[in-house]
Design a binder for these strands. Structure first.
Lengths: 272, 272
DNA sequence: CAAATAGTGTCTCTAAGACAATATCAC
DNA sequence: GTGATATTGTCTTAGAGACACTATTTG
C-alpha cells in the first residue's frame, strides 16, 4: 500500500481529458439620458457590454467579454479580472447565472463557460476593447415575450441592431433556460447566456437585491425606483415603492439641487 | 488573413493550461421512520449520501459522490450519471449550488468542482459504493447556528459521527457561503459545499420549490408538510400550510388506509 | 404661477398566522 | 369510546396596491 505522499507523486493529471474553462461577463448598467425639458428627471435604459470579435471563430460577431481561467485564480477572481480589464471598474458583486458546458458550444474545442452577471453604475464606466476585440460598446436591451414561449432579444447601439430569438426551455429557482432559435450577430451561445442572465437579474430586482449596485453611494428614491422599473419593465406607484424600500435604505441629510422641481433627499443603502 | 477553417486547424488547445472538472453530488432524502405507537405518523429526518474514500488523498475520509467530466457530456449530464451510478435513481432535477475553483482545494492538482444538489424519494434508493469508495451511507443531518455566525454541521449514521464547524462568509440570493474552520472527517472542502447546499435547499423549500421531489407521485398533505418542516427546521399550523399549498397541488380520489386514524386524501403536484 | 417631482396619509383587499371546531378511522 | 390525524372555518393583523393630497423648487 502506497503512502499518501507516494500516491500524489505518481498521480498524473494527464490521465484524464480536461476542458478549457472561461469566465464570461454579462455586465449590466443603466444609462440615464437627459430629456427634452429641463424639468424632467432623466430616463433609464438597461444596457449590456459587448465586444466585437477581432479573430476567428465568429470574427466580427458580437460577444460577451471574458477570458480563460488561469491556474492561480478562482473563477470569481477570473471574472473580476475580466471586468476590470474591460471597464476599469472593480464591481461590487458578481452573480453566477449559469454554466455552459455543451461539448460542441465552441468550434475551437472543449470549452466550458462560467457566466457571471455584474452590475456597474453608469458613472465611471470606461469600456475599452481588449486584445481580442476590435470594439467594446454598450448596447440597449429589449427582451420581450412574443407568443408561445418565444422571446426576442434586441440589442441596439446607435444604428447597430442585433436581434436574436429564443425559446423558453424551463424555469427553476427564478432562472429561465432558453434554446436558441436564431443568434443574429451574437457569437457562440451568448444569446442564451444573455437571456438567462436577464431573467436572473429580473428575479433579483423583484426582491430588491442588487438594484443598489446600479447607483452611486448616495441616491434618490426616485432613481432607485427608476432602476427597478427599468429592469422589471413595469411601473409602480412611488408611494408604495417608498413604503416597501424604506427598511432597506438609510436617509442622509443631503439633498439634490437645481432640478427645476422640489429637491429630493439622498439615501444610502442600509447595511444589515 | 486566414480563413476560419485554417484558423481552427491551427488552433491548439494545449496553448493554455487546463483544469480537471468534476461534478459533485449533494444527494438529499428524507427518511421516514416508524414511531412507537401504531397510531403515529412517521417522523422525517433529512439525510445526505456520503462515500468513504478508498484511496488517497483523504483515504478513509467521507466525501460527496462525484466524478470527472467527460468530453462527450455537459456537467449536468455528468451529474445525472454520477447520481445514477451511486444510487440507481434518475433524479427529477438537479440544482447547481456552487462552483469550487480554489486552485489549492485538491492536493492532486487543479480540479474544479461543480456542486449539484439533488433530491430523492426515500423509496427505491439503493446506495452502492462505486469504484473509488469502500462504503456509501446515508447520514442524518444537523446544521445549527451557534453564536456569532458560527455553524456546526453534524452528520451521523448509527455510531459514525462527523462534526464540522464553519463560519458564515456572505449571503446572497438565498445562498450562504462559508469558510471551513474544521472539516472533521470530511474530505477536501466538502464541508462547506454541504453547508452551502443546505442553505440553498432551505431557501428553495421556503418557496415550496422542489419539496415535491422528496415524495412519491402521490402523497398526503401531512407528508408534504413534514418535508417542509424537516428541511426548514420549523413547525407550522397544518390549516395554514394547506391554504398556502392548495394552489400547487391537485387532489386525487384516493385515500390512505390502515393508519389507525382518519384516512388522508392523496394529492399530486399540479403541473403549471 | 406653472410644471414637474418629492413626500405623506388613508382606504381597500388579500394573504398569513392563530385558533377553534368538526370528521373519520383502527383498535 | 379513545387516541390519533384530517379537514374546514373564522378572527385578527400585516402588507400590497390604488389614490388623493400636500410640499417644494426653478424658470
Amino acid at each position: 500500500m502506497d503512502s499518501e505522499k507516494e500516491f500524489l507523486q505518481k498521480y498524473n493529471m494527464d490521465d484524464y481529458e480536461r476542458p478549457s474553462v472561461t469566465s464570461d461577463i454579462i455586465a449590466f448598467t443603466i444609462k440615464f439620458t437627459e430629456e427634452d425639458s429641463y424639468r424632467h428627471n432623466p430616463d433609464g435604459a438597461l444596457q449590456i457590454l459587448l465586444i466585437k470579435r477581432k479573430g476567428y471563430p465568429f470574427k466580427d460577431h458580437w460577444a460577451l467579454p471574458g477570458g480563460f481561467l488561469q491556474s492561480n485564480e478562482t473563477i470569481e477572481e477570473c471574472a473580476y479580472r475580466e471586468v476590470f480589464e474591460e471597464t476599469g471598474v472593480k464591481p461590487a458583486s458578481l452573480m453566477l447565472t449559469g454554466i455552459y458546458s455543451d461539448p460542441n458550444r465552441d468550434p475551437r474545442g472543449w470549452i466550458i463557460s462560467n457566466a457571471f452577471a455584474t452590475i456597474l453604475s453608469d458613472k465611471d464606466i470606461n469600456a475599452t476593447a481588449g486584445d481580442d476585440a476590435s470594439e467594446a460598446l454598450w448596447f440597449n436591451i429589449a427582451f420581450n415575450c412574443d407568443t408561445d414561449n418565444t422571446y426576442t432579444l434586441t440589442l441596439t447601439h446607435d444604428d447597430i441592431v442585433i436581434t436574436a430569438t429564443l425559446k423558453e426551455k424551463e424555469t427553476k429557482f427564478g432562472k429561465t433556460d432558453f434554446v436558441i432559435q436564431n443568434s443574429g450577430e451574437l457569437a457562440f451561445d451568448h444569446a442564451k447566456i444573455i437571456a438567462t442572465a436577464l431573467t436572473v437579474l429580473r428575479s433579483s430586482a423583484e426582491k430588491f437585491e442588487l438594484i443598489f449596485d446600479f447607483l452611486p453611494e448616495k441616491f434618490t428614491l426616485s432613481a432607485l425606483q427608476q432602476v427597478q422599473e427599468t429592469i422589471m419593465n413595469i411601473s409602480v406607484l412611488s408611494a408604495n415603492f417608498r413604503r416597501k424600500i424604506s427598511s432597506l435604505v438609510q436617509e442622509t441629510d443631503e439633498y439634490t439641487t437645481g432640478a427645476g422641481h422640489r429637491p429630493a433627499k439622498l439615501f444610502t443603502k442600509k447595511h444589515l
